[in-house]
Amino acid sequence: MADDRAAKILAAIGGPDNIIEIEPCITRLRCELEDGGKVDEAALKAIGVHGVVRAGGVVQIIVGPEADTIASDIEDLL
């Protein structure tokens, strides 16, 4: 999916400096962040993600089956 979704997601989770690790798992991005409070859920919903689930220090962004591609696009932006 060669669109700007990766860049928009990256911005909505606080930008490159806030990322400790992003791990794709089939339909979701597991984002380990410096500061989970910087996640803009409204912005993520506006991008069209299916959902946002917080579990401890990890924020899971449910993006659908393109998760692997989006994660690799985000890695390219870091």
Binding site: T27, R28, H50, G51, V53, I62, G64, P65
Partner: peptide
């Protein structure tokens, strides 16, 4: 798992 249980995908 909430993602599956809530049928998010």
């Amino acid at each position: 798992d909430p993602v599956f249980a809530q049928a998010m995908v």
